[in-house]
Write a protein that binds this DNA or RNA. Structure first.
Length: 271
DNA sequence: ATGGGCACCTGGCTGC
DNA sequence: TGCAGCCAGGTGCCCA
């Protein structure tokens, strides 16, 4: 499911209900997520107040009194705000019951998501420490991208999806950003001209910001914390549009598999 | 250091 | 109707 816009939409949706609230109770129905939730998790988090809710890449960071909870939505995860008496359905793995009687519920059919606890600086956690820059930060600019891609033979689309290069860009927005930047997904990352790197940076920022504004992309099952879908699907130029005419030039959109992931592009608009 | 491939899961859809 | 096969918003890890 979720790339940066969906995670950010989730963060914005739950923050008002969660920040400043105390976790009265945690309920874990399924510990076998990407990483097993330790049995002392509930005891650790209960009674702590959520001081801040941040996002780093696709991770949500719940800063608490004595540490932080890290939550990743994986491919199929979602967080919802519900009343604490709402019956749990299939794949409702974790509840954080707040002192307001609201409940933050994590649902994840495929269980690629994760719920972790750290006692120390969350940004220093092994899963976060090596992450590349935030795409919407000033640090992510043409000079940075050109420098980090220099000499690399990997295809540009796969480079964009590497979280050490830049965080938050997944399979949808990698294809979309390359379309907006007029760059073919198979181009060697290290062979982009500087002006192409600049165009790509601009395209990544624009597509992510546009998608956040639309509440993210719902293809199949993504929903925001209030149960609503994201509306960016209608603004996708290439993703899942194989064989359909390019909105710009009419050429049929092409599809191929790259690193076991579907890639879409317009052979006329992208070079 | 880099890149490629696999693994982890469930559910929905397609086609026989 | 049933079922095999394929595909899906991610990413850490192992190996060459």
């Amino acid at each position: 499911m979720p790339e940066l816009p969906e995670v950010e939409t989730t963060r914005r949706g739950i923050a008002p209900a969660v920040v400043g609230r105390t976790i009265a109770r945690a309920v874990v129905r399924e510990r076998r997520l990407r990483w097993r939730i330790p049995t002392n998790f509930e005891r650790t988090i209960e009674g702590q107040t959520v001081r801040d809710l941040r996002r780093r890449g696709k991770y949500l960071i719940f800063d608490c009194d004595r540490g932080a909870m890290l939550l990743h939505l994986g491919m199929s995860g979602s967080l919802r705000l519900l009343t604490s008496d709402t019956p749990a359905l299939a794949h409702d793995h974790v509840d954080l019951v707040l002192d307001t009687a609201q409940c933050l519920r994590f649902n994840d059919p495929r269980r690629f998501g994760s719920v972790l606890w750290t006692d120390s600086d969350p940004l220093a956690h092994p899963l976060l420490a090596a992450l590349g820059p935030e795409p919407l930060s000033d640090e992510f600019d043409a000079d940075y991208l050109a420098r980090v891609l220099k000499g690399r033979s990997i295809a540009i689309k796969q480079a964009l999806m590497n979280s050490q290069v830049v965080v938050g860009v997944g399979n949808i927005y990698a294809s979309e950003a390359l379309f907006r930047a007029h760059i073919r997904p198979r181009r060697a990352a290290g062979r982009l001209r500087h002006d192409e790197a600049a165009a790509l940076v601009k395209a990544i920022k624009a597509v992510l910001q546009d998608a956040i504004r639309a509440g993210g992309t719902t293809l199949r099952d993504y929903i925001d914390p209030h149960g609503r879908p994201g509306y960016f699907k209608r603004k996708l130029y290439v993703y899942e549009r194989a064989g359909e005419p390019c909105f710009v030039c009419g050429t049929p959109i092409k599809h191929f598999v790259q690193g076991q992931r579907s890639t879409y592009f317009c052979p006329t608009c992208q070079r």
